[in-house]
Design a protein around this nucleic acid. Structure first.
Ligand code: FES
Ligand code: FES
Lengths: 149, 149
DNA sequence: GCATATTCAGATCAATCAAGTAGGAATTTA
DNA sequence: TAAATTCCTACTTGATTGATCTGAATATGC
Protein backbone atom coordinates (compact mmCIF):
# COMPACT_ATOMS: atom_id res chain seq x y z
CA UNK A 1 0.00 0.00 0.00
CA UNK A 2 2.70 2.22 0.47
CA UNK A 3 5.07 3.61 -2.02
CA UNK A 4 6.06 7.20 -1.55
CA UNK A 5 5.52 9.12 -4.79
CA UNK A 6 8.56 10.68 -6.36
CA UNK A 7 6.87 14.02 -6.06
CA UNK A 8 7.14 13.85 -2.30
CA UNK A 9 10.67 12.55 -2.42
CA UNK A 10 11.63 15.37 -4.73
CA UNK A 11 9.97 17.90 -2.47
CA UNK A 12 11.89 16.73 0.55
CA UNK A 13 15.22 16.61 -1.22
CA UNK A 14 14.63 20.11 -2.55
CA UNK A 15 13.63 21.41 0.86
CA UNK A 16 16.69 19.90 2.43
CA UNK A 17 18.69 21.67 -0.22
CA UNK A 18 17.00 24.94 0.69
CA UNK A 19 17.86 24.53 4.33
CA UNK A 20 21.52 24.90 3.45
CA UNK A 21 21.44 27.44 0.65
CA UNK A 22 19.16 30.01 2.16
CA UNK A 23 17.76 30.93 -1.22
CA UNK A 24 17.99 29.27 -4.61
CA UNK A 25 16.27 29.12 -7.95
CA UNK A 26 14.34 26.11 -9.11
CA UNK A 27 16.83 25.59 -11.91
CA UNK A 28 19.81 25.39 -9.61
CA UNK A 29 18.13 23.00 -7.21
CA UNK A 30 16.87 20.83 -10.01
CA UNK A 31 20.35 20.49 -11.40
CA UNK A 32 22.01 19.85 -8.06
CA UNK A 33 19.46 17.27 -6.94
CA UNK A 34 18.89 15.63 -10.31
CA UNK A 35 15.22 16.50 -10.41
CA UNK A 36 13.39 17.35 -13.65
CA UNK A 37 13.26 21.13 -13.80
CA UNK A 38 9.70 21.58 -14.93
CA UNK A 39 8.43 19.03 -12.49
CA UNK A 40 10.16 20.67 -9.57
CA UNK A 41 8.74 23.98 -10.69
CA UNK A 42 5.24 22.58 -10.31
CA UNK A 43 6.08 21.03 -6.98
CA UNK A 44 7.37 24.29 -5.63
CA UNK A 45 4.12 25.88 -6.67
CA UNK A 46 2.34 23.48 -4.37
CA UNK A 47 4.76 24.02 -1.53
CA UNK A 48 4.31 27.74 -1.87
CA UNK A 49 0.54 27.43 -1.82
CA UNK A 50 0.87 25.36 1.31
CA UNK A 51 2.74 28.17 2.97
CA UNK A 52 6.04 26.38 3.23
CA UNK A 53 7.95 28.42 0.68
CA UNK A 54 8.24 32.07 -0.24
CA UNK A 55 8.97 33.05 -3.81
CA UNK A 56 10.99 36.02 -4.97
CA UNK A 57 10.07 36.65 -8.56
CA UNK A 58 12.02 38.27 -11.31
CA UNK A 59 15.68 38.19 -12.11
CA UNK A 60 17.92 36.92 -9.32
CA UNK A 61 14.81 35.67 -7.60
CA UNK A 62 14.24 32.21 -6.24
CA UNK A 63 12.64 30.38 -3.38
CA UNK A 64 13.31 30.36 0.35
CA UNK A 65 11.75 28.68 3.32
CA UNK A 66 8.77 30.46 4.82
CA UNK A 67 9.76 29.34 8.31
CA UNK A 68 12.77 28.07 10.13
CA UNK A 69 13.26 24.39 9.30
CA UNK A 70 12.84 23.54 12.97
CA UNK A 71 9.24 24.68 12.67
CA UNK A 72 8.40 22.68 9.56
CA UNK A 73 6.98 19.27 10.33
CA UNK A 74 7.38 16.52 7.82
CA UNK A 75 3.66 15.94 8.05
CA UNK A 76 3.18 19.38 6.56
CA UNK A 77 5.45 18.60 3.67
CA UNK A 78 3.70 15.35 2.90
CA UNK A 79 0.33 17.00 3.20
CA UNK A 80 1.46 19.72 0.82
CA UNK A 81 2.50 17.43 -2.00
CA UNK A 82 -0.18 14.83 -1.62
CA UNK A 83 -3.55 15.74 -0.32
CA UNK A 84 -4.86 14.78 3.04
CA UNK A 85 -3.93 11.19 3.51
CA UNK A 86 -6.94 9.01 4.08
CA UNK A 87 -5.98 5.36 4.45
CA UNK A 88 -9.29 3.74 3.56
CA UNK A 89 -12.18 5.02 1.56
CA UNK A 90 -14.79 3.90 4.04
CA UNK A 91 -13.24 6.31 6.50
CA UNK A 92 -14.19 9.15 4.25
CA UNK A 93 -17.33 11.03 5.07
CA UNK A 94 -19.18 10.28 8.24
CA UNK A 95 -16.92 7.36 9.00
CA UNK A 96 -19.52 4.72 8.37
CA UNK A 97 -18.89 1.27 7.08
CA UNK A 98 -20.84 -0.50 4.40
CA UNK A 99 -20.62 -3.76 6.22
CA UNK A 100 -21.33 -2.93 9.80
CA UNK A 101 -21.35 0.25 11.81
CA UNK A 102 -19.03 -1.22 14.43
CA UNK A 103 -16.39 -2.17 11.94
CA UNK A 104 -13.28 -3.70 13.43
CA UNK A 105 -11.04 -3.47 10.37
CA UNK A 106 -11.78 0.22 10.45
CA UNK A 107 -10.19 0.51 13.86
CA UNK A 108 -7.17 -1.25 12.57
CA UNK A 109 -6.76 1.22 9.71
CA UNK A 110 -7.37 4.07 12.03
CA UNK A 111 -4.61 2.88 14.27
CA UNK A 112 -2.29 2.70 11.30
CA UNK A 113 -3.13 6.22 10.29
CA UNK A 114 -2.48 7.46 13.79
CA UNK A 115 0.84 5.67 13.83
CA UNK A 116 1.96 7.19 10.56
CA UNK A 117 0.72 10.64 11.46
CA UNK A 118 2.53 10.51 14.77
CA UNK A 119 5.77 9.66 13.06
CA UNK A 120 5.43 12.34 10.43
CA UNK A 121 4.67 14.91 13.10
CA UNK A 122 7.60 13.85 15.22
CA UNK A 123 10.22 14.79 12.66
CA UNK A 124 11.05 18.30 11.52
CA UNK A 125 12.72 19.38 8.33
CA UNK A 126 15.70 20.56 10.29
CA UNK A 127 16.28 17.10 11.66
CA UNK A 128 16.52 15.41 8.32
CA UNK A 129 18.61 18.22 6.90
CA UNK A 130 21.41 17.83 9.38
CA UNK A 131 23.62 14.83 10.11
CA UNK A 132 23.14 12.84 13.26
CA UNK A 133 19.49 12.16 12.78
CA UNK A 134 18.05 8.71 13.31
CA UNK A 135 14.42 8.28 14.28
CA UNK A 136 14.16 4.92 15.99
CA UNK A 137 16.83 3.84 18.47
CA UNK A 138 16.95 0.28 17.18
CA UNK A 139 20.53 -0.96 17.34
CA UNK A 140 20.06 -3.91 14.99
CA UNK A 141 19.49 -2.21 11.68
CA UNK A 142 18.27 -4.77 9.24
CA UNK A 143 18.59 -2.53 6.23
CA UNK A 144 19.75 -5.22 3.89
CA UNK A 145 17.51 -7.83 5.43
CA UNK A 146 14.50 -5.83 4.36
CA UNK A 147 15.52 -5.96 0.73
CA UNK A 148 16.65 -9.52 0.72
CA UNK A 149 13.41 -11.48 0.64
CA UNK B 1 1.16 8.72 -0.11
CA UNK B 2 -0.85 6.33 1.52
CA UNK B 3 -4.12 4.99 0.47
CA UNK B 4 -4.78 1.40 1.26
CA UNK B 5 -5.86 -0.42 -1.91
CA UNK B 6 -9.29 -1.95 -1.89
CA UNK B 7 -7.66 -5.28 -2.58
CA UNK B 8 -6.10 -5.25 0.86
CA UNK B 9 -9.25 -4.02 2.50
CA UNK B 10 -11.20 -6.77 0.81
CA UNK B 11 -8.68 -9.34 1.89
CA UNK B 12 -8.93 -8.32 5.51
CA UNK B 13 -12.69 -8.19 5.55
CA UNK B 14 -12.83 -11.63 3.96
CA UNK B 15 -10.33 -13.05 6.42
CA UNK B 16 -12.25 -11.64 9.34
CA UNK B 17 -15.28 -13.34 7.90
CA UNK B 18 -13.38 -16.60 7.74
CA UNK B 19 -12.40 -16.34 11.37
CA UNK B 20 -16.03 -16.74 12.34
CA UNK B 21 -17.31 -19.15 9.74
CA UNK B 22 -14.60 -21.74 9.87
CA UNK B 23 -14.98 -22.53 6.18
CA UNK B 24 -16.81 -20.74 3.39
CA UNK B 25 -16.90 -20.45 -0.36
CA UNK B 26 -15.76 -17.37 -2.17
CA UNK B 27 -19.27 -16.77 -3.42
CA UNK B 28 -20.80 -16.73 0.02
CA UNK B 29 -18.17 -14.41 1.43
CA UNK B 30 -18.39 -12.09 -1.53
CA UNK B 31 -22.10 -11.75 -1.08
CA UNK B 32 -21.95 -11.29 2.67
CA UNK B 33 -19.17 -8.71 2.54
CA UNK B 34 -20.28 -6.92 -0.61
CA UNK B 35 -17.11 -7.73 -2.50
CA UNK B 36 -17.06 -8.43 -6.27
CA UNK B 37 -17.02 -12.17 -6.61
CA UNK B 38 -14.43 -12.51 -9.35
CA UNK B 39 -12.16 -10.04 -7.68
CA UNK B 40 -12.28 -11.83 -4.37
CA UNK B 41 -11.58 -15.07 -6.17
CA UNK B 42 -8.33 -13.64 -7.44
CA UNK B 43 -7.45 -12.22 -4.05
CA UNK B 44 -7.97 -15.57 -2.38
CA UNK B 45 -5.61 -17.07 -4.91
CA UNK B 46 -2.94 -14.75 -3.65
CA UNK B 47 -3.71 -15.41 -0.02
CA UNK B 48 -3.51 -19.11 -0.68
CA UNK B 49 -0.16 -18.75 -2.45
CA UNK B 50 1.06 -16.81 0.54
CA UNK B 51 0.20 -19.72 2.79
CA UNK B 52 -2.57 -17.98 4.67
CA UNK B 53 -5.47 -19.96 3.27
CA UNK B 54 -6.18 -23.57 2.44
CA UNK B 55 -8.55 -24.41 -0.38
CA UNK B 56 -10.90 -27.38 -0.56
CA UNK B 57 -11.80 -27.86 -4.16
CA UNK B 58 -14.81 -29.42 -5.71
CA UNK B 59 -18.39 -29.36 -4.68
CA UNK B 60 -19.02 -28.21 -1.11
CA UNK B 61 -15.47 -26.99 -1.02
CA UNK B 62 -14.31 -23.59 0.08
CA UNK B 63 -11.52 -21.83 1.88
CA UNK B 64 -10.32 -21.95 5.45
CA UNK B 65 -7.52 -20.35 7.38
CA UNK B 66 -4.23 -22.15 7.20
CA UNK B 67 -3.41 -21.19 10.77
CA UNK B 68 -5.15 -20.02 13.87
CA UNK B 69 -5.96 -16.32 13.53
CA UNK B 70 -3.84 -15.59 16.57
CA UNK B 71 -0.84 -16.68 14.55
CA UNK B 72 -1.57 -14.55 11.50
CA UNK B 73 0.06 -11.16 11.62
CA UNK B 74 -1.48 -8.32 9.72
CA UNK B 75 1.89 -7.69 8.17
CA UNK B 76 1.59 -11.07 6.49
CA UNK B 77 -1.79 -10.22 5.07
CA UNK B 78 -0.60 -6.93 3.69
CA UNK B 79 2.49 -8.53 2.27
CA UNK B 80 0.34 -11.18 0.61
CA UNK B 81 -1.91 -8.80 -1.26
CA UNK B 82 0.64 -6.17 -2.12
CA UNK B 83 4.20 -7.08 -2.66
CA UNK B 84 6.96 -6.23 -0.29
CA UNK B 85 6.33 -2.66 0.67
CA UNK B 86 9.29 -0.50 -0.25
CA UNK B 87 8.62 3.12 0.61
CA UNK B 88 11.09 4.79 -1.71
CA UNK B 89 12.66 3.60 -4.90
CA UNK B 90 16.16 4.67 -4.00
CA UNK B 91 15.97 2.14 -1.19
CA UNK B 92 15.68 -0.59 -3.74
CA UNK B 93 18.79 -2.47 -4.61
CA UNK B 94 21.95 -1.85 -2.68
CA UNK B 95 20.37 0.97 -0.78
CA UNK B 96 22.39 3.66 -2.43
CA UNK B 97 21.27 7.18 -3.16
CA UNK B 98 21.75 9.02 -6.38
CA UNK B 99 22.45 12.23 -4.59
CA UNK B 100 24.75 11.25 -1.78
CA UNK B 101 25.66 8.00 -0.14
CA UNK B 102 24.95 9.36 3.32
CA UNK B 103 21.47 10.42 2.40
CA UNK B 104 19.48 11.86 5.26
CA UNK B 105 16.04 11.74 3.65
CA UNK B 106 16.68 8.06 3.23
CA UNK B 107 16.90 7.60 6.96
CA UNK B 108 13.65 9.42 7.34
CA UNK B 109 11.90 7.06 4.95
CA UNK B 110 13.45 4.11 6.58
CA UNK B 111 12.18 5.22 9.93
CA UNK B 112 8.72 5.49 8.46
CA UNK B 113 8.95 2.00 7.08
CA UNK B 114 10.04 0.64 10.43
CA UNK B 115 7.20 2.42 12.13
CA UNK B 116 4.62 0.98 9.78
CA UNK B 117 6.12 -2.48 9.88
CA UNK B 118 6.13 -2.45 13.65
CA UNK B 119 2.47 -1.58 13.75
CA UNK B 120 1.48 -4.19 11.20
CA UNK B 121 3.42 -6.82 13.09
CA UNK B 122 1.88 -5.89 16.38
CA UNK B 123 -1.65 -6.80 15.36
CA UNK B 124 -2.95 -10.26 14.64
CA UNK B 125 -5.93 -11.26 12.60
CA UNK B 126 -7.62 -12.58 15.72
CA UNK B 127 -7.46 -9.16 17.33
CA UNK B 128 -9.28 -7.35 14.57
CA UNK B 129 -11.79 -10.15 14.22
CA UNK B 130 -13.06 -9.87 17.75
CA UNK B 131 -14.63 -6.93 19.54
CA UNK B 132 -12.69 -5.02 22.12
CA UNK B 133 -9.71 -4.28 20.00
CA UNK B 134 -8.22 -0.82 19.87
CA UNK B 135 -4.53 -0.33 19.14
CA UNK B 136 -3.75 3.04 20.70
CA UNK B 137 -5.25 3.81 24.08
CA UNK B 138 -6.02 7.42 23.15
CA UNK B 139 -9.44 8.37 24.53
CA UNK B 140 -9.80 11.59 22.53
CA UNK B 141 -10.01 10.40 18.97
CA UNK B 142 -9.31 13.31 16.69
CA UNK B 143 -8.82 12.61 13.02
CA UNK B 144 -6.51 15.44 12.07
CA UNK B 145 -4.67 16.39 15.21
CA UNK B 146 -3.36 13.04 16.29
CA UNK B 147 -1.23 12.29 19.28
CA UNK B 148 1.43 14.93 19.69
CA UNK B 149 3.09 13.84 22.87
C1' DG C 1 14.49 50.92 -21.76
C1' DC C 2 15.56 46.37 -22.66
C1' DA C 3 17.34 41.94 -22.37
C1' DT C 4 17.31 38.39 -19.11
C1' DA C 5 16.33 35.49 -15.43
C1' DT C 6 13.08 34.06 -12.85
C1' DT C 7 8.26 32.60 -10.98
C1' DC C 8 3.62 31.33 -12.41
C1' DA C 9 -0.33 29.09 -14.78
C1' DG C 10 -2.51 25.98 -17.82
C1' DA C 11 -2.94 22.30 -20.99
C1' DT C 12 -1.27 18.06 -22.53
C1' DC C 13 0.70 13.37 -22.78
C1' DA C 14 2.56 8.77 -22.05
C1' DA C 15 3.13 5.09 -18.94
C1' DT C 16 1.70 2.69 -15.18
C1' DC C 17 -1.41 0.79 -11.92
C1' DA C 18 -5.80 -0.27 -9.59
C1' DA C 19 -10.06 -2.32 -9.99
C1' DG C 20 -12.89 -5.10 -11.94
C1' DT C 21 -14.65 -8.35 -15.82
C1' DA C 22 -14.82 -12.42 -18.65
C1' DG C 23 -14.55 -17.16 -20.06
C1' DG C 24 -13.53 -21.31 -19.26
C1' DA C 25 -10.76 -25.34 -17.48
C1' DA C 26 -9.87 -28.52 -13.52
C1' DT C 27 -11.58 -30.83 -9.51
C1' DT C 28 -14.45 -32.91 -6.15
C1' DT C 29 -18.87 -34.24 -4.22
C1' DA C 30 -23.69 -35.46 -4.08
C1' DT D 1 -23.46 -37.34 -14.36
C1' DA D 2 -24.48 -32.79 -12.87
C1' DA D 3 -23.62 -29.17 -9.89
C1' DA D 4 -20.65 -26.53 -7.17
C1' DT D 5 -16.55 -25.17 -6.34
C1' DT D 6 -11.45 -23.65 -6.99
C1' DC D 7 -8.22 -22.25 -10.47
C1' DC D 8 -6.04 -19.97 -14.52
C1' DT D 9 -5.30 -16.54 -18.16
C1' DA D 10 -6.32 -12.70 -20.36
C1' DC D 11 -8.68 -8.40 -21.03
C1' DT D 12 -10.87 -3.64 -20.20
C1' DT D 13 -11.37 0.55 -18.13
C1' DG D 14 -10.47 4.44 -15.47
C1' DA D 15 -7.51 7.01 -12.52
C1' DT D 16 -3.13 8.42 -11.16
C1' DT D 17 1.76 9.42 -11.62
C1' DG D 18 5.40 11.57 -13.67
C1' DA D 19 6.62 14.69 -16.66
C1' DT D 20 6.59 18.01 -20.67
C1' DC D 21 5.25 22.03 -23.39
C1' DT D 22 3.93 26.75 -24.13
C1' DG D 23 3.78 30.87 -22.78
C1' DA D 24 2.55 34.67 -19.72
C1' DA D 25 3.77 37.78 -15.62
C1' DT D 26 7.32 39.91 -12.93
C1' DA D 27 11.41 41.80 -11.28
C1' DT D 28 16.45 42.88 -11.77
C1' DG D 29 20.70 44.53 -13.72
C1' DC D 30 22.80 46.91 -17.25
S1 FES E 1 -15.14 0.90 7.65
FE1 FES E 1 -13.84 0.04 6.13
S2 FES E 1 -14.36 -2.06 6.16
FE2 FES E 1 -15.66 -1.22 7.64
S1 FES F 1 18.27 7.54 -0.91
FE1 FES F 1 16.40 8.42 -1.57
S2 FES F 1 16.90 10.55 -1.68
FE2 FES F 1 18.75 9.63 -1.04
Amino acid sequence: MFQVPTKTQYAIRALVHLVRTKSASVASIAEAEHIPFKYLEAIFGQLKSAGLLIADRGRSGGYRLARAPELILMSEVVKATEGDITPVGCLDDAGFCIVSEACLPRRFWFGLKRTVDAYLESVTLAEIAEPGFLPAPDPSQKESAAAKD
